[in-house]
Design a protein around this nucleic acid. Structure first.
Lengths: 128, 128
DNA sequence: GCATCAATTGACTTTTACGTAAATATTGTT
DNA sequence: AACAATATTTACGTAAAAGTCAATTGATGC
């Protein structure tokens, strides 16, 4: 595995702009190291970026994505904090399960659309 | 089943504003009937609204939701149009399957977070 | 050492999806 | 018919998530 990626390498790999990556850094989602001013992205930064884009595809806001990626870090040492985090984790899981349900429903409806298209095509095939 | 719903009934049921519902109408997503100027929403309008909000939860834009709900209408009569629609339907399904994959991955990672929290809690229980 | 090419910074702009407010109209009730 | 409660229309405002542009500032090759 490579040690560093440049910003343009990542923009090409993920098809996003440099502005987007810098925006995520401004928002505190990623923290690449620097050589002078230039950003250098470690594999872990790249992985984090992947997770951020995954969150985006699911329609999570930057703030929500931030909450989620913070959870991937070391769990807190204090019991109260731990319980609070577990509560937040469960909230996110509930949202995800709801989304999954929404997806299944939408997929089912689109399957029906597809089938009725096939039917119509068959009818047309007969009539022409 | 009731014949009509008022706009405020729907805002209460779905916890959205009248502005939002009128906005969806402006964007061509719903088309309630009118008595004078006043909008009257049929059960089908209410159902459509449900589908719109489902799309929103999945992070689809208004334009994308529009594309999807248009698909639920009668399939076109012409073969070329039908094939085009089936292509679009397949595109949406591909997006949904990607989202579902994203959800499974995120859920798996959050499960891991949860477990490591439980572990930490157990350690704390032993140490105190 | 100088050109050039990539990267950074900062400011301003754009798009989406509504929010908010003011003025007007409608409806149901008494 | 009057009046309060709703609804509508029009217009401007706003927050989030970048896009765009300009001015610099390194980095690199020769």
């Amino acid at each position: 595995m490579r040690e560093f990626y440049t910003i343009t390498e990542l923009t090409r790999e993920f098809d996003i702009s440099t502005r987007t990556i810098r925006f995520y850094e401004d928002e505190g989602l990623i923290r690449p190291v620097r050589r002078g001013r230039t950003r250098l992205f470690r594999p872990s930064d790249r992985h984090l970026l992947k997770q951020i884009l995954r969150g985006k595809r699911l329609g999570f806001s930057i703030a929500e994505i931030n909450e989620i990626v913070q959870m991937y870090k070391e769990p807190p040492g204090e019991a109260g904090q731990l319980r609070l985090m577990m509560k937040r984790v469960e909230e996110k899981r509930a949202m995800l399960r709801q989304k999954r349900k929404d997806i299944e429903e939408t997929l089912a409806e689109l399957d029906a659309v597809d089938e009725s298209c096939i039917e119509r095509l068959a009818e047309l095939g007969v009539n022409t």
